[in-house]
């Protein structure tokens, strides 16, 4: 039985009918499109396509021996794309090879401007294209949601770690960074800063003025520290600064004095000038003597240094460890 060519074209728009002599008798309309007008009929099939899997074939008997098997082939003309193929005898000594794009269909449609009439109506290619588009749209919607949620999460995290009045880190953020630094094991300095005379500002000029003072002090601290340092407000007028890798006492003393000096500058609030000062206690994440402290102990050490600074008459700084004699030389 040999089918009318129109029937074969409609059923298999990507077929190649090869005669017993290896000459191409006919190609389906879509296959012709892929060949981009290169002469087909009459040529030897091996000039038109290169069957390379499961093995290379060059003759009709070779092709017939592979009938029913999944072939991989490359067109020698036009697009030279790789296709799937199936070869079956035509009953008259020749072969009909039917071809398909497989998952390359998305690219093939784009490259050759194929339309739905280029596919047999029973072919799932169009449904596959539909699915690819539909899934991309759905996936994009999902990604949009994820991006929005991530943005919201970052904003919430930022809020949770920020002191709203000053924009500095808050207690929670400080605990977090402190734990991490202790875990990492490097050395760092912890400055515990307490404002002096802040209560007087609040009592005399009101809380709004107090808030302005805290904001001004926060700005000073940010200006005098590095980008990677942690500056946190942990209570009313209590601050902590973590300085990673900075353990040189001379430099720390200089920084503490500079902080105090700058904080003591009069802060204009409306028509008055508010004056505060600060006391600073300094402790180290990796002290020269004794075991490494935990976060709580470290805070206590800085706190007792602060207490000593206050006792020395305010506007002072003090170290947790008494300065070793050799360091003074």
């Amino acid at each position: 039985m040999i089918l009318p060519s129109d029937t074969l074209d409609a059923l298999c728009p990507m077929h190649m009918h090869i005669g017993a002599d290896g000459g191409v008798r006919r190609m389906g309309p879509t296959l012709r499109k892929l060949m981009e007008g290169a002469a087909g009929e009459g040529a030897q099939f091996a000039e038109m396509m290169d069957v390379f899997r499961p093995r290379r074939v060059g003759t009709v008997p070779d092709l017939l021996a592979l009938s029913g098997r999944r072939l991989q082939l490359r067109l020698c003309r036009g697009s030279q794309m790789v296709l799937k193929g199936l070869a079956m005898p035509d009953g008259q000594g020749g072969v009909i090879v039917n071809m398909s794009f497989g998952i390359a269909v998305v690219d093939a449609v784009r490259e050759h401007a194929l339309t739905s009439t280029d596919f047999a109506v029973t072919d799932l290619a169009i449904d596959m294209l539909y699915l690819v588009e539909a899934k991309s749209a759905a996936f994009e919607a999902s990604r949009t949601l994820n991006r929005r949620l991530q943005g919201a999460m970052l904003a919430a995290e930022q809020r949770a770690y920020t002191d709203t009045l000053t924009g500095l880190r808050n207690r929670r953020a400080l605990d977090h960074v402190l734990q991490r630094l202790l875990l990492e094991g490097g050395n760092f300095a912890l400055l515990h800063i307490d404002l002096d005379y802040f209560k007087q500002v609040n009592d005399t000029h009101g809380h709004a003025a107090g808030d302005r003072v805290l904001q001004a002090v926060a700005r000073v601290m940010l200006e005098l520290t590095r980008k990677d340092d942690t500056v946190a407000r942990i209570g009313g007028d209590e601050f902590v600064i973590l300085l990673v890798g900075l353990t040189d006492r001379v430099r720390l003393s200089a920084l503490a004095e500079q902080l105090i000096h700058r904080i003591e500058r009069p802060i204009p609030v409306e028509d008055v000038e508010c004056r505060v000062s600060a006391s600073i206690g300094i402790a180290f994440g990796a002290p020269k003597t004794g075991a490494r402290p935990g976060a709580e102990e470290l805070m206590e050490r800085a706190d007792s240094a602060l207490y000593r600074a206050k006792r020395q008459g305010r506007a002072q700084h003090a170290f947790d460890e008494p300065t070793p004699v050799e360091d003074l030389r």
Binding site: R110, L114, S116, L129, E133, A137, E140
Partner: peptide, 8 residues
């Protein structure tokens, strides 16, 4: 068919 949607 070939007009790849911007979405993709």
């Amino acid at each position: 068919l070939a007009a790849a949607p911007a979405l993709r």
